[in-house]
């Protein structure tokens, strides 16, 4: 964990961002201590600046992979080439900025290791977002990977946990065809996959209902299949009770996505030039966290000061 950080980016961006935030925080502190009301829109303005400045003047960091993320990375690494892995896109646009970078990194990693990938979704919106991953990652970065031989898109099915309850023991009953109406029996890469319990690994990317939790309940535990979660930050803490027995690892929020992207670049330097949204977002994320921590500190300074003044009266 103590590995030194590598900070890149324009110095101008760092200076502008920090100066704006420091100045603003001091102004807020002084105003709060004087007992003057701070308009909520001013707070909103701070957040906007703290997030915007590092986007416009990028600051990027190298992330050190944490154990719970490393477990997922190591699992994909340890599978023999040619293993069949499923990636489930169970999210909507409201979660996509957090979890789509994870799904993209998983896809890249699986293909780099020579695994075969089954894409599917149990969220209607997931199929549309999956289209974006297929266009921007699979077809662009891995043009040599052929549909239905190296990867297959099963698409979306309605029914939430009902879908999972079927595919764990009989894939073809729920998915007679892939998303382009091609029968599963005619797809070579699925010849040995009769059910999801035949898979080497399932990467459940999501955060709502149904999501990684339902994958554990309806597929992982009854089918004895290893499952890893890529979860939105809001739901990630709720998945920890499943780790490490029922979930082999958890990626929670954009920080974990950035860690995974860093690990990918360390292991496969050829991916250094691809877009890494996780790492890109950590600059704005860091500054926004700092601003919110400052808000908490200032709010509490004012609270204790007024409490002391009240007790002196």
């Amino acid at each position: 964990m103590t590995e030194a950080l590598v900070v890149t980016g324009t110095n101008l961006g760092v200076v502008i961002s920090l100066a704006l935030i420091a100045g603003g925080v001091i102004w807020l502190l002084v105003r709060s201590l004087k007992g003057k009301e701070v308009e909520r829109r001013v707070i909103f303005g701070f957040v906007l600046i703290a997030v915007s400045a590092p986007i416009l003047f990028p600051i990027t960091f190298h992330e050190q992979i944490s154990p719970v993320v490393k477990a997922v990375f190591d699992k994909i690494e340890s599978l023999p080439a040619g293993s069949t892995v499923a990636i489930s896109f169970d999210f909507d646009p409201a979660m996509a900025p957090e979890v789509q970078p994870m799904a993209n990194a998983f896809t890249r990693h699986c293909f780099a290791k020579g695994h075969k990938v089954v894409f599917l979704s149990i969220w209607a919106t997931g199929q549309s977002l999956l289209t974006s991953t297929l266009d921007t990652v699979v077809r662009r970065e891995f043009p040599e990977k052929r549909e239905r031989i190296d990867w297959v898109n099963l698409g979306y099915k309605a029914g939430n946990q009902g879908v999972l309850n079927v595919i764990v023991s009989d894939l073809r009953k729920m998915y007679p065809t892939d998303v382009n109406a091609v029968p599963l029996d005619s797809i070579p890469m699925l010849a040995e996959v009769k059910a999801f319990r035949d898979l080497s690994l399932i990467l459940a990317v999501g955060g709502g209902f149904p999501g990684p939790k339902e994958w554990v309940l309806y597929v992982g535990d009854p089918g004895n299949v290893p499952i890893a979660a890529g979860a939105a930050a809001v739901t990630a803490p709720q998945l920890y009770p499943y780790y490490p027995r029922q979930l082999i690892g958890i990626l929670g929020g954009i920080k974990s996505a950035a860690e995974y992207e860093s690990a990918m670049v360390d292991k496969y330097p050829q991916f250094d030039s691809v877009d890494k949204p996780g790492l890109r977002m950590m600059g704005p994320q860091t500054l926004a966290h700092m601003v919110i921590m400052m808000f908490i500190i200032i709010g509490n300074i004012v609270f204790f000061r007024s409490k002391r003044m009240r007790s002196q009266l």
Partner: peptide, 26 residues
């Protein structure tokens, strides 16, 4: 402690979404 951790993660998640939208605009 559990709720504190959940709050921290919630902040992280919401900021990420804002970063996503502002990145689209810029």
């Amino acid at each position: 402690i559990t709720f504190g951790a959940a709050f921290g993660y919630t902040v992280m998640g919401r900021i990420t979404l804002l970063v996503g939208r502002l990145t689209f605009l810029y």
